[in-house]
């Protein structure tokens, strides 16, 4: 999993958190609505279709022409997929993993981001440079030694910490918070705190964290979704014995004989939590992508 920043130059020099001065934008014509409607429909269709397949029984998967309307077997398929792929444990694991990763990333990113944005220390520029380079290096390339480390040296394979600990910090997160705080947190506020005898810890806790709340929320959202959707590393590090949701989903598809309605019921189970988050916080997620940008 890598996270990718879009520097401010690329978002048109707009500061994060600052609203675009909305110019008198041109109104959309009917044609625009129709085109965008089609695009949104194409975007949503595969998910709709997996709902269709998951709500019909498996014989429907063999019908020609294919069924396009939901059937009545949704609950039964969900239940069967749930027990067959051990989704109970998997969902619990995913919640633990994604939550802990999110908390750790937000904490470590706000700490380091604050230091890089507002504290003076020797070597800060060079260290920030190193941080920027590390963002470009895909972690996936070191996955073999990481596995050996986890399995042979630490004995963590099969345990959740094998997935949590390597993901507990994020270069992208540090950079994102740094960019935000450089602009959004007035240095005068910190100096006033210092005059009042605040230690750096207290400044972090009482001044920086509240000021960083918007960027921390966006970072938390994306970290959670990425951790939830991650597949390659949990597959290696946890395996089928103690799976996350995505790994459990793959067990449904692993055999040579596939029960399609079960597999697609599984995709619904594994996607539903993130879909719910998206439904409620979609606006913030879109704002996050457009402000400082993020990606899995």
């Amino acid at each position: 999993m890598t996270l990718i920043p879009v520097s401010r130059a690329m978002t048109g020099g707009r500061r994060p958190g600052q609203r675009a001065a909305a110019p008198a934008q041109r109104r959309a014509g009917t044609r625009t609505y129709v085109l965008l409607g089609i695009i949104a429909a194409v975007s949503a269709f595969p998910l709709y279709w997996s709902l269709v397949a998951a709500s019909n029984d498996n014989s429907a998967a063999g019908s020609w022409p294919p069924k396009l309307l939901p059937g009545t077997h949704l609950w039964a398929n969900l239940q069967q997929a749930y027990t067959q792929a051990n989704f109970g444990l998997a969902l619990l694991n995913s919640i633990i993993v994604a939550t802990l990763i999110t908390v750790c990333v937000v904490l470590t990113s706000t700490l380091a981001g604050f230091a890089f944005a507002k504290l003076r220390f020797r070597g800060s520029n060079a260290l920030l440079g190193i941080l920027l380079v590390t963002m470009m290096v895909p972690a996936q390339l070191g996955i073999i030694p990481l596995y050996i480390m986890m399995s042979q040296w630490l004995g963590w394979t099969g345990h959740l910490q094998a997935v949590i600990v390597p993901a507990a910090t994020s270069a992208f997160g540090v950079f994102l918070v740094r960019q935000y705080l450089s602009d959004a947190l007035p240095t005068a506020l910190l100096e006033a705190g210092r005059m009042d005898g605040c230690s750096t810890h207290r400044l972090y806790w009482h001044v920086v964290l509240p000021a960083a709340r918007p960027v921390a929320a966006v970072l938390a959202l994306f970290t959670f979704m990425n951790a939830w959707n991650d597949f390659f590393w949990p597959l290696l590090a946890l395996g089928q014995g103690n799976p996350t949701t995505q790994v459990a989903l793959s067990t449904l598809a692993g055999g040579y004989y596939m029960d399609y309605s079960l597999v697609l019921a599984g995709t619904l189970i594994s996607t539903a939590p993130v879909l719910l988050v998206f439904l409620f916080l979609g606006k913030q997620i879109i704002g996050g992508i457009m402000q400082g940008a993020v990606k899995a």
Binding site: Q25, R26, R27, A28, T32, Y33, L36, G37, I39, A40, A41, S43, A44, P46, L47, W49, S50, A53, A61, M225, W228, N229, F231, T245, Q246, L249, S250, A253, Y260, V263, L264, G266, T267, S270, T271, V274, L275, F278, G282, K283, I285, I286, I289, A296
Partner: peptide, 29 residues
């Protein structure tokens, strides 16, 4: 400028938040 702008943007972004594993399986079908 348009009505339902957030909704349309969400619709466009929907594929990206779906898990890769699920996407692969759905498209395989």
């Amino acid at each position: 400028k348009m009505r339902g702008r957030t909704l349309l943007r969400m619709g466009v972004l929907l594929p990206n938040i779906t898990s890769v594993a699920a996407v692969g399986l759905i498209f395989a079908q």
